[in-house]
Amino acid sequence: MFLFNTVDGRQYFDVTRLSQLLCLPYRSAKKCSIGLALGSFFALMVGCKDTTKEDFMPSQKSDFVNHTFSAALAFEDNFGQVASNFNQGESFYLIFTLTNQSSSDQQIDFSSSQRLRAVVQNANEDIVYDFDSRVMYAQVLGRELLAPGEQRRFVVSMSTNDFSVGEFTVTAAIALSDLSNDELLDNEITQFESRNTFSVQ
């Protein structure tokens, strides 16, 4: 069934798929947040069918050789157009694209509904927003399977109400279990990360 995945022979409810399904008809952040909340609630009611964290190993950086993936980060306005300048009070979307550059299927396992880790810095390089502290994630197992050459788009709704006027740098990465915010802030951009800027006026 579309809303379930199988890990090590055990079936579990995939809250990410339900959330995407609930958010599909909407572009507004508020309605999409309602969809995510409903998805999280439903996942808690359904349960994980005896699948525990002890049975499941979240993916780490060392699970993948160099150049397995490439990552790209962009922003879109409410009309789905790529943009980097937004007005105060406007909502926008962070678009993270992960591409499997290898010649084999690549499987990424997650211990929660979180798929992205990201930090936002202002012109003084102060952290003004980060996904780990500002977003709640359902504690359900998840998996992303990318075929050779396949791209996977991860979309996160954001609002300029969370930022002052100015320019901001976002560093985002797929949420591997051993990839920390500190690593996002260093100068090295790995195969799992991408960096881009946007401004609020």
Rank of each mutant, 00 (worst) to 15 (best):
Y26N: 06
D14A: 07
D63L: 07
L179M: 12
D109N: 11
A172I: 04
L184K: 13
C23V: 03
V140K: 00
R152D: 01
S177R: 14
A175W: 05
M57P: 01
Q88G: 01
R143H: 04
D50P: 13
T97V: 13
D105Y: 15
Y137Q: 05
N161Y: 10
E193Y: 00
F96I: 04
A123R: 08
D77L: 02
E150S: 05
V128Y: 01
R117L: 14
T169E: 13
S180P: 02
S33T: 11
F79H: 11
E144I: 08
S103G: 10
R195Q: 14
V140W: 04
D55F: 10
G9D: 00
M158G: 08
T68A: 03
Q106H: 01
G9V: 02
S133T: 15
T169A: 06
A74P: 00
Y129T: 02
A72W: 08
N78P: 03
L24F: 07
A175I: 01
S59T: 15
G166K: 05
L73Y: 09
V135M: 08
T51D: 05
I95H: 11
F131A: 09
D126R: 08
S91R: 11
N85A: 13
T68K: 07
S113N: 06
V140E: 04
L94F: 11
K30H: 14
S28L: 06
N85F: 09
M1T: 08
N196C: 01
V120Q: 01
A118P: 07
S40E: 11
F13M: 04
E188N: 14
E167C: 14
I95S: 10
G166D: 09
M45F: 02
F192Q: 00
M136N: 15
F69E: 05
A37P: 02
F79L: 11
E144G: 00
Q151A: 10
D130T: 03
T52R: 14
I174Y: 08
R17N: 05
F131I: 15
D63E: 11
E188M: 11
Y93S: 12
T197D: 01
K61I: 14
I95G: 00
S104F: 06
D77R: 05
D126H: 12
A147P: 01
A138P: 04
V200H: 10
L179I: 13
R143E: 03
V15S: 06
C48F: 09
T169P: 06
V200C: 07
Q106Y: 05
F86T: 06
D14C: 10
K30P: 05
T197Q: 06
D132R: 10
Y129P: 00
V82I: 15
F192T: 05
L38D: 04
E125D: 06
S28A: 13
T51N: 11
A72K: 15
F154R: 02
T16H: 08
D109E: 07
T190I: 00
V135S: 04
K30I: 14
V165H: 09
D50F: 15
D50N: 15
A83I: 01
K30R: 15
V155S: 03
L22H: 01
N196G: 06
S133C: 10
F131D: 10
S103E: 12
S33N: 10
L18I: 07
